[in-house]
Design a protein around this nucleic acid. Structure first.
Length: 196
DNA sequence: AGCGTGATCTTT
DNA sequence: AAGATCACGCTG
């Protein structure tokens, strides 16, 4: 496995949303427990020009991680019970991030099942709230980065072949028409699209 | 299809 | 100070 360097994240948001697909997210927990999962669904949130983005009206206490260096982790809490994991894109001081919407469990599945309170592997990480829970990610992770020992990405080897699908983003009320969701076609762990 | 849950942001 | 919203998940 080849670890991705800091430079990997220095990309425009939509491009990073595509490049993250298929990558292995590694999360180290106390006790040398290692969790690994493949990213299979993402969404781009394009900073101050995107009405659906938290940074649309500029920097606030909550969204300040989105203005930090690419490869920073932006975690926020919503709906009273869910944490959302995002990976920051764009140069420092320019807002942008990619929401990780679903993952395929790869390693440490028993620990993930424990954290999620369910044994059903297919639904362990098939949604942004679920995967954060399965990886024990909460607001303490906000502002950390992906080039240390606690969180990092790896290239999956051998490199998997897959086709990338594009659609509108899920669960937002503004700018719903923009095709900024990316996912691996036919991967069973991609979240079900919520319709309203 | 409905609703819990609480932080954050906007409006008064 | 009050009200609205929310990048969701679970039951039914």
């Amino acid at each position: 496995m080849k670890r991705l360097e800091k430079q990997f994240y220095e990309l425009p948001t939509l491009e990073l949303a595509e490049k993250l697909l298929g990558k292995i997210f590694v999360r180290m927990l106390p006790g040398n427990i290692r969790l690994k999962a493949r990213i299979v669904e993402t969404e781009a949130y394009m900073g101050e020009h995107d009405e659906a983005c938290h940074a649309y009206r500029g920097r606030t206490a909550r969204n300040s991680s989105m203005f930090r260096a690419p490869g920073t982790i932006y975690v926020y809490f919503t709906y009273g019970c869910h944490y959302m994991l995002n990976i920051v894109s764009e140069p420092e001081n320019i807002a942008g991030a990619v929401l990780i919407r679903s993952m395929e469990p790869v390693d440490g599945i028993r620990v993930m099942q424990e954290l999620r309170g369910t044994a059903v592997v297919k639904s362990l990480m098939s949604g942004p709230g679920k995967l954060a829970r399965a990886l024990s990610i909460d607001s303490r992770c906000n502002g950390k980065d992906l080039y240390g020992e606690e969180f990092f990405l790896e290239n999956a080897l051998p490199l998997p072949e897959f086709m990338i699908g594009t659609s509108t983003r899920v669960g937002i009320s503004k700018s719903r028409e923009l095709p900024w969701r990316k996912y691996i076609i036919n991967n069973p762990h991609v979240s079900k699209v919520r319709h309203s």
